[in-house]
Amino acid sequence: MWKFFHKLASPPHFYQFAGKVVPWFAFTAIACIGYGGYAGLFVAPADYQQGDAFRIIYVHVPAAYLSMMGYSIMAISAGIGLIWRIKLSHAVTAAAAPLGAWFTFLALATGSIWGKPMWGTWWEWGDPRLTSELLLLFLYIGYMALRASIDDIAKADKASAVLALVGAVNVPIIHYSVEWWSSLHQGPTLVREGGPGMVSDMLYPLLAMILGFTFLFGALLLGRVRTEVLFRERRAKWVREMLLDDGGTT
């Protein structure tokens, strides 16, 4: 088992391995999202309270889930990179940041679109989830801004890894303080979002969408890490051999 991870940490092996895994992830993602999307839109019964507007959760919940998962992946790979000095895990952190930011933006946008019919406003400060999602987006932006402002890759890796770890410590604190903050004034009653209470016809599409989005995130992340590894290892021999002999864009 340990030997597998050790082999994975070396760039050429990772590059080949990721190349093989991405299509499988993508295929599973398409299947899950296909089923979940169709079932969520047309098969699942309308919510008694919100009518068909509730179908937005089939995109909002997976996006919000991935925005959090993206940041945890960044924090874990930043920690591994700093502690065991594995360059590859810095590449993972660098690749995960823009993806996580996009999904956080998606969660915010779909959340506010979903809020319009229910609360009548595009932005409802009363909902702590939207506010902590916004702060998470600021953390992503801070990370990417720091990384963009340092030219030397090794230094940018380590500095932004420290920031990712400090940010990760603060994510639960920010979430808790926003919850406390919104509970001070009586915001509009919040709609219970998903969870076992839902009828199984509603729940299965949601699980399928979450699974599909996760696999999609995995495929996109591995793809971007391959690009990152290729750029970082451009001086390496294995890159020269791979790119010159077969000429294929694997």
């Binding site: 702060l135 600021f138 720091l146 603060n170 808790y176 303080s177 406390w180």
Partner: peptide, 20 residues
Amino acid sequence: RGTALLSLLILPLAMPVLIF
């Protein structure tokens, strides 16, 4: 040109302090 960047990095961390 670290000045603007510094507040970009630190403000999200300062939010819980401001809130409470």
